[in-house]
């Protein structure tokens, strides 16, 4: 578990109209980190889905609640990016956060599936406060070069 401070932090209110600005920032950052164009778009989509889940389910569409984003640029043996998104909504069982069965075609329920499909690591957990959930996601530039398990160097719980 790394205690390194994030390279970039952002706090925003749970307003859907802010999502496009976050996407633009993530696209710019991932390009600079070295991901190709398709991967940059995918990472922005995964972040967008995570934020949309917080707004829709965590805050039940309330648009004045806080969302905290931390971004780490990963170097050394696992070049890539780690994103942590935290909210202050009611806590739920992390194991209950699942994508729907894709064979059952219906509106909704795709966000978690998309996040897990795109990212090399995706874990939901409770924050160590009375309130709030977090999701930690990692994407590596050359995942085929990564050895061992997909356990990330996750930041310390706060």
């Amino acid at each position: 578990m790394s205690e390194k401070a994030p390279d970039l932090t952002l706090q925003l209110q749970s307003k859907p109209k802010l999502l496009s600005s976050v996407r633009s920032m993530i696209l710019s950052l991932t390009q600079r980190v070295g991901f190709d164009e398709i991967e940059c778009g995918h990472i922005a989509l995964a972040i967008d889905e995570a934020l949309a889940n917080v707004i829709r389910h965590g805050y039940e569409q309330r648009d004045d609640e806080p969302i905290h984003i931390g971004v780490w640029i990963l170097n050394e043996d696992r070049p890539g990016i780690r994103i942590m998104i935290e909210d202050e909504a009611d806590q739920i069982d992390p194991d209950s956060i699942k994508g729907r069965d894709l064979e059952d075609v219906k509106p909704g329920g795709l966000g978690v599936h998309i996040m897990k499909e795109i990212m090399d690591f995706c874990r939901f957990e409770r924050r160590k406060q009375e309130k709030g959930m977090r999701v930690i996601m990692e994407k590596y530039i050359n995942p085929e070069h990564v050895s061992g398990t997909k356990e990330p160097h996750s930041p310390q719980a706060t």
């Binding site: 967008d48 889905e49 949309a52 509106p107 795709l110 998309i114």
Partner: peptide
Amino acid sequence: PYMDSSGVATLVEGMQ
């Protein structure tokens, strides 16, 4: 140029 799962969900509703 961009669509997330809420846009996809809207199109699934359209298909239904």
